[in-house]
Design a binder for these strands. Structure first.
Lengths: 262, 262
DNA sequence: GAGTGGTCTAGACCACTGT
DNA sequence: CAGTGGTCTAGACCACTCC
């Protein structure tokens, strides 16, 4: 015999998929549900936990359980990097002509930085290795919180690192008040005479920390993408390292790899 | 005051990180632990569930809870695609000279197919759209189970689709007995006169289905990468679609994006 | 304050594993 | 068989949200 909580979960799944329970709709209280399904509250909660892990329901403490509205997935395409690079110079060219209308144009098509927070930190072992600098080298750490335009939940947590020494040639870059910066990071690097050659991204999936779950409005059990983006310039020097946390249930990452012709 | 099960989880985390509890070591029985921490068994289990979700312990029914040995992460780099493409012709060249020593050289550096299972299916709406063929078009569906060389748990579940009509020019490709195929899929396509131009990969993270958890030896709550790889040839035709499930806790995906010079 | 989900207890019994 | 984790019960009380 199937486990009781699984049978209950399956019954609720059917109701949801069949449209008996519609997106946004509130489920009966857990005590009521336990009664309906002739079981105890803890067992009922086991069933609900299953649905929750699958992303079918949202749990809201003190309010209730709700059938989840399918959240729009956001696509993150690696073509954005070339796009950003092209744009970095465009913006620069226009600046020379027109002045500064740049403030409207955000960083990237679907990102809009609302909060930027800068500080200086010494490189730990990990970062020192990636940058190929001695441990303890001063880095500029920049924290961003970005939101989708629609005023939904915040969408990604970004921590970016630059070598302080390298950046100091342009003092504007040290001030968080200048964010969001028209033309994005690649334009910032351009002001330092740095051109990027390639970008490497390493992706892992893991459960969110309590902090991340809080900030991203995630529920326990939903996994996050952890992405480390490493930007290397044309002299083969690592110039930026960026750690990004993305909600696994709302993000779709797309990478296109071109192949050399035979 | 912090929640009790969180305090207990934290205490155990410390013990693990500090090396008091070593990888592979068995924890005391849940009843004993509950006693030690002066709590009930269900609460103790809440704490253990937390550690389990974080990948710090393995739960083995009927045996015990164990500190997890850090499983080697497998790196999946997109440079493999170019590597495979180069290799596809190399193998071909050597075949003409020497004969068939190809059987030793697997598909890709760290993959080894142990089980291949072929069948023909009509294209559903989803696949038809990707291939740009009418719904119902016959596809060759190939299921692979790959294992890391060390005889550990199976490592990825792959379902690959090709348009049956296209493949039939080389009947050898229709027989699962010819797997693993020296030179991999790109060599198979080469025998059909097909050269790939680029590969697109779409990545999502989600909890595993019960089936996947079973096959990959995953534990509940650990998420999987779902990767769809779309291969397009030099005539801009989609020739292969491959759905891959990878364990999120053991896989690190790496993508390098080259940028055009200014 | 009323109603909700979250935490916690103290057990009982079942299912799985190894000897 | 003994020992383990998995499921399930029937409650109590706390923390949160809304009115």
């Amino acid at each position: 015999m199937a486990k009781k909580y699984e049978r209950i979960a399956e019954a609720l799944r059917q109701d949801i998929r069949a449209g008996q329970l519609r997106p946004g709709e509130k489920l009966p209280a857990e005590t009521k549900l336990a009664e309906q399904y002739r079981t105890s509250v803890p067992t009922m909660r086991d069933a609900l936990r299953e649905l929750h892990a699958e992303g079918l329901i949202d749990k809201r403490h003190g309010i209730g359980n709700f059938v989840r509205k399918p959240r729009p997935r956001v696509e993150r395409n690696n073509e954005r990097h070339q796009w950003e690079k092209d744009r970095a110079r465009l913006v620069q060219a226009e600046r020379e002509k027109t002045g500064s209308t740049e403030h409207d144009t955000g960083l990237t098509v679907s990102d809009l930085a609302f909060k930027a927070d800068f500080r200086e930190v010494p490189a730990n072992e990990d970062l020192a290795a990636v940058f190929s600098v001695p441990e303890g080298t001063l880095l500029l750490e920049r924290n961003y919180r970005t939101f989708p335009r629609e005023g939904d939940a915040p969408f990604s947590l970004v921590t970016s690192y630059l070598v302080r020494e390298v950046v100091s040639a342009n003092p504007d870059l040290l001030d968080a008040a200048n964010e969001p910066w028209a033309g994005g990071t690649q334009n910032q690097l351009l002001t330092l005479g740095i051109e990027l050659d390639h970008i490497e991204e390493r992706i892992m999936a893991r459960p969110p920390t309590a902090e991340e779950a809080e900030e991203l409005g995630l529920q326990k059990g939903v996994s996050v993408f952890q992405l480390r983006k490493i930007s290397t310039d044309t002299t083969d020097r690592v110039v930026e390292v960026s750690d990004v946390i993305l909600p696994g249930d709302r993000t779709e990452m797309v990478f296109t790899t071109p192949l050399a012709r035979w």
